[in-house]
Each structure stands twice: as structure tokens, then as C-alpha cells.
Design a protein around this nucleic acid. Structure first.
Ligand SMILES: NC(=O)c1ccc[n+]([C@@H]2O[C@H](COP(=O)([O-])OP(=O)(O)OC[C@H]3O[C@@H](n4cnc5c(N)ncnc54)[C@H](O)[C@@H]3O)[C@@H](O)[C@H]2O)c1
Ligand SMILES: NC(=O)c1ccc[n+]([C@@H]2O[C@H](COP(=O)([O-])OP(=O)(O)OC[C@H]3O[C@@H](n4cnc5c(N)ncnc54)[C@H](O)[C@@H]3O)[C@@H](O)[C@H]2O)c1
Lengths: 230, 230
DNA sequence: GACCGTTTGTGAACTCGTGCACAAAGCGGT
DNA sequence: ACCGCTTTGTGCACGAGTTCACAAACGGTC
């Protein structure tokens, strides 16, 4: 593997020639969480075997995933927990901070606003907005709900890069368009609709009803095969 | 394509020889939702092109997905909306009803309990349980919160097949073990932990923090390439 | 009934992701 | 300095999933 030496004299792997696969990126946060657990437990080094078991993946897959972000491991020993945490954080972009705006403060929006998990890894809920005048002014988790018309001002002022949509499905596309128009380039959508966005905007969806239907499919498969065995 | 005739005289495609791929199963609920929208709008038939656009996938992928569940389409015309809804529902196992138990009625559990989307497609919230005695007895969306020790009784009585975990991460594995011990074979996990379950149990996870970190990765990628262009 | 434009269903090529197996590399003990 | 044990990093084969491209099928029209 080729190694470049940067100005400060520290060796620096530039494995950022080939981009990391989407499947790998989706697993890195899991590794990160598991590693954080090890670090809390005072464990200094882990083998790919241990990490793999804790993360629920195969050891080979784990090693291949990690190899995509550089060669940070010691043969015969394993990985240094703290160093690996740092490297994964760096690759995922968690060394920066991201401001999040939550749009739609209903049942779900309330839960999200109060969710402690946001703050833990570089994400900060900058504002809560809703279209319902009755909700505007309410304070949740230390934040006052603002009107959705303030969206552009809020996004500009707090340099919001991630928008979370927790409105009814009927309003989601409209809200998304407004977010994109304000310059938001990442959207996390909880509403059960397929959002249309320009090329450069990333959308990820969390869809409870789809998850349930996938489970239903497997339930049926299980009960059918149980029936066939009879 | 071979066609079998069942006892009742109706022609019945037995495309259920080969199992449907996981990727396809994950998209079927999306098609179903889009189709429901078309049906509401009074549209009787759709082409793969129309459906694909509405579902946010390519037309070829859509046709291949649908072909996996039989040959329900008319060349030169398209698909009959109602019939396709029925067929997808059948394949996904939504013609049956599933009872769901929600474990952990905190911020998120509250939102889930009140979520209308549960009832719409054959899923029924049979019970809410929590470990906190202060929460037991509270009524949410017409259901009284019961103690988690009642879990086994509840699962047996309501024939619960799907368990939703909305407890803190520290309690999730324990709750999961108890659900599995009661005979629950599908779990939807909102807690940020990797659950260990026996082979025959399906687990799906919804993990907000992972989604955010994936978005962060792409945000970083975007800002880096913008910087490189400068 | 033959023709024509349309749309499905699907083989085939291709890309992407996974798992195996092993050589290279490090560490500790002698 | 050597040896043996452990574990990484990766080449390779394989399977899953996607995309292309087109023949076969259908409805409508003459
Ligand atoms: N509650 C859940 O557990 C749950 C689970 C999965 C998905 N969802 C989805 O999440 C979304 C929200 O669910 P909920 O239960 O919180 O609904 P809700 O009706 O309780 O809340 C929706 C909120 O959005 C606000 N809103 C409506 N239009 C708006 C607009 N144009 N701009 C800004 N705010 C607007 C409303 O005033 C309301 O406060 C829905 O799409 C739902 O399908 C909810
Ligand atoms: N709030 C959110 O928006 C959000 C988003 C994503 C993920 N999550 C995750 O969902 C889970 C719940 O989040 P929350 O905000 O509702 O937390 P919460 O603390 O408000 O609620 C947790 C509930 O679980 C109950 N509980 C604890 N141990 C239990 C046990 N052994 N059996 C049954 N019930 C038990 C508690 O009494 C409490 O009522 C957490 O793991 C959290 O990380 C929450």
C-alpha cells in the first residue's frame, strides 16, 4: 500500500482514491457503536473476530470493510479501539458538526426532539418547526417550536445541512421542496412517501410500515413451511 | 409459463417454487403504497413506466420484481391496479392479520402506540407493556399499559407474532430474549443495539443514529468534492 | 383476420457484495 | 536471531441484484 507523508511529517494513508461502497458505509456506524462499548469497558484492542461477533457480521466482511478505509490494524494483535474509533469517525465525517432541523412536531416529532441520541455524535438539533400555529411557541427539550415559514431564516442562520421530515405524508413533498430550496442537501424522511429530489440531495427514509410488511412476509413464509411439514 | 388449476377451478399460477429475493420483498410495500394511491385516484390500470416513476425505481427493475410473483399484467396495456394490489398483498402475507406488542412506552413508544399507520394494513397493536410501575395503568390510544411481566400471558392470549422494542438500549436484549421465549418470531427493534436471536427469528432494526451517520458521510463527500473543485 | 403500435416478461451481460482461504506480518518466548 | 502462534489484509470465486434489449403477446383498427 502506498503511503504519503504530509507536511507535518506524520505518515498519512491516502486510501481515499476509491470511494467506499454504500454497503460498507451502512455498517461503519454499527462498528463505531460496538467499539464505543468496548472503549467504555476499558478494552484497548479487539480482534476482527470479537468485533464481528459483537456487530453481528462475519469476520471476513468486517476486515474487508475496515481495509477500505486504510490499513489500521496490527497483524497478530488486532485493532486499537480508540484509534479505530477515530478513523471510522473521520471517514464518516463525524469530526465535523451537523445542524439538524426537525419539521413537524407531532407525536413522532416530539419523540425525536427529546431523543438524546442526537447529541451524542456530532449532531445538534438546531430548531423545531411546525405549520400548526397552536404548536408554535411550545418549548420541547429546551427548544421553542417555530413556524415553518421561518425555515429559510433558520437554515441560513444555523447552517443546517440535514432536514428531518416528520409531517403527515401529504405535506412531506412540499416540506422537502422547501428544505431543498433553502440549501439543505440531506433529508431523513419519516413520512410514508417517495420523495422527489434533485441529483445532489441525499434522502434516507425510515418507514415503519414497510418494515412491518417485510416481517409479515417472513412470518407467512414461516407458517407456510410449518404447514407443509405437517 | 406453467399454470396449475386448483380444486376450486380457478387458474392459479404457482410461481412460488423459487423464493422471492430480499431486495424485491423490500420494494413490494412501496409498490403497494403507490398502487393504493392510484386506486384512490380512480386509476384502473398502470404501466410499468408509470408505476416505476411513482415508486422511484427503474421500469425494468419493477417488471422483474413483479414477474417474481407471477405473470399478472397485460402486454400492450399494463397492470390492473386492484388486481395487482391484491396479488402483492397476498404474496406479502397481508391477507392475514398480525398482532403486535409494543414493549417500552416512553417517548418513542407513545408515538408508535398512537400511530395510525399500524392499523391500516392488517397489523393490530394488541398490547403495550412497560417495566416502570408508574406507567402501568396509563391509557394510550385506547389501550391500557400493562406490566412487562404479563408479556407471556399477553403473547399467548392475543397470538402475538411481532414484537416492537422501544426500550432503552440496555434493556433491549433482555426484552428480546423474553419475547422469543414467549414464541414471538419477528422483532422490530428501535433500540441502538445488535440483537442476538435464534435462527428462526427475524429481526429488523430502525436506527436513527445510523441513518444520520450515513447522511453525514455523504455530506462530507459533497463538501470535499466542492472544495476540490475550487 | 391481418396489421400496427404498445407494453410485458425475461434471457443475457454486467456490476456489486460476500465468503473462503492463505500468504504476509507482527509479537513473544527462547 | 529464530521459531511458532496469532491475526490481518486481500486475491479469487461465487452468488445476488441490476440493467439492457428484444421477442412474444395483447388490444384496437381497418
Ligand atoms: N407516530 C409514529 O409512530 C410514526 C411512525 C412511523 C411513521 N410516522 C410518520 O411520521 C409522520 C408524522 O407522524 P405523527 O404521528 O407525528 O403525526 P402528527 O399528525 O402527530 O404530527 C404531524 C405534525 O406535522 C405538522 N405539519 C403538518 N403539515 C406541516 C407542514 N406543511 N409543515 C410543517 N409541519 C406540518 C402538524 O401540525 C403536526 O404537528 C407521518 O407521516 C407518519 O406517517 C409516524
Ligand atoms: N425517542 C426517539 O426519537 C428515538 C429515536 C430513535 C431511537 N430511539 C430509541 O428507542 C428507545 C426508546 O427511546 P425513548 O426515547 O422512548 O426512551 P424512554 O426512556 O423515553 O422510554 C423507554 C421506556 O422503556 C421502559 N423500559 C425500560 N426497561 C424496560 C424493560 N426491561 N421492559 C419494558 N420496558 C422497559 C421505560 O420504563 C420507559 O418507559 C431507545 O433505545 C432509544 O435509543 C428513540
Amino acid at each position: 500500500m502506498s503511503v504519503a507523508v504530509s507536511g507535518d511529517g506524520l505518515p498519512r494513508q491516502h486510501a481515499r482514491r476509491t470511494s467506499i461502497s454504500e454497503a460498507t458505509v451502512a455498517r461503519l456506524p454499527v462498528y463505531l457503536r460496538v467499539l464505543a462499548g468496548f472503549a467504555d469497558g476499558g478494552i484497548a484492542t479487539v480482534s476482527s473476530e470479537q468485533l464481528a461477533v459483537a456487530a453481528g457480521v462475519g469476520p471476513a466482511k468486517l476486515r474487508k470493510d475496515l481495509s477500505h478505509l486504510g490499513s489500521y490494524g496490527t497483524r497478530g494483535v488486532g485493532y486499537d479501539v480508540d484509534y479505530l474509533i477515530y478513523q471510522i469517525s473521520r471517514v464518516l465525517g463525524l469530526t465535523q458538526h451537523y445542524s439538524v432541523v426537525i419539521v413537524g412536531v407531532g407525536n413522532l416529532g416530539h419523540a425525536l426532539a427529546g431523543y438524546a441520541g442526537f447529541g451524542t455524535r456530532g449532531f445538534r438539533v438546531a430548531a423545531l418547526v411546525d405549520a400548526d400555529p397552536a404548536r408554535v411557541g411550545e418549548t420541547i427539550a429546551g427548544l421553542e417550536v417555530q413556524h415553518v415559514d421561518e425555515l429559510e431564516t433558520i437554515v441560513k442562520e444555523h447552517e443546517v445541512s440535514i432536514g428531518v421530515i416528520a409531517t403527515p405524508a401529504s405535506a412531506a413533498q412540499d416540506v422537502c421542496d422547501r428544505l431543498v430550496a433553502c440549501g439543505v442537501t440531506s433529508v431523513l424522511n419519516f413520512a410514508p412517501v417517495v420523495l422527489n429530489v434533485p441529483e445532489q440531495v441525499d434522502v434516507r427514509k425510515v418507514d415503519l410500515s414497510i418494515e412491518l410488511q417485510i416481517l409479515a412476509f417472513h412470518e407467512q413464509r414461516k407458517s407456510l413451511s410449518a404447514q407443509a411439514a405437517r
